[in-house]
Amino acid sequence: MPFPDTSSPDRIPIAAGIGLRFPHHREVAAAPRGLAWVEVHPENYMAGGAMLDRLDIIRRDLPVSLHGVGLSLGSAAGVDSDHVARLKAMIDRVEPGLVSDHLSWSVAGGVYLPDLLPLPYTEEALRITARNIDDVQSSIGRTLLIENPSRYLAFHHTTMTEAEFLSALVARTGCRLLYDINNLFVSARNLGEDPAATLFAVPIDAVAEIHLAGHTCKTLEDGAEVRIDDHGSTVASEVWDLYARFIRRAGPRPTLIEWDREIPALDLLKAEAAKAQRLLDTAHVQETLVA
């Protein structure tokens, strides 16, 4: 059942924003102009402290999206109601334009593993993940965006593609999608698939946000090359190409530049966002001409 969308009045604009990390807080709070919107990981603020106060200040000037890493929507044991309550408190305080998390799991047996671990795409996993998304959406009173993860392996007992799995989640829960084009590229390369062939396999009307980030290549001991989604560099040219193709056909969407390791000067993030914005502007012009 689709959940009624109760997005905050300060919606995320169809423009390029940046992932806001602690080293840039002071600079962004002092001079928010030049940024269309920012996204933060709510778990980084749930312990409280001065950074949460600074986020309040930034929120006065900029639309903010909350992008979770801790809901563990694929956990067989269900979602942690205490964590959902913490997320609800953050939503009430920040009034974000969008709320998202990942198609992954990180909690089992009471242990939290700080990574976005892969799910087998089976009917059982679909049923569990849909139930968990329903639980979260009911508790927070908001529609969730679900992000496709980076994957480094595949399971024998998978019975559907990731795009089929995401489509089914959208149909069953009314959630929407955060389409990470870098993750799509990384997963496809790691699993021997063609990213261009699956670019439009997700329900494109459900895509409410796009993520772009950098990744690295690593050669394993057996000589295999693996792409690691480490968010520590500029966006790869192949990913820019896929992004341009997607928004040309699907239309412009709010787009975010993520950078989590060896965080650079804010100007470099702004330059990456400006690059995305130019492509968004082009897609917007094309969309207007077609209309």
Partner: peptide, 15 residues
Amino acid sequence: MPDLATLQSDFVRAI
């Protein structure tokens, strides 16, 4: 093949 709960427990032990 393991059910999801078993697979996740196996992953925790592996990690």
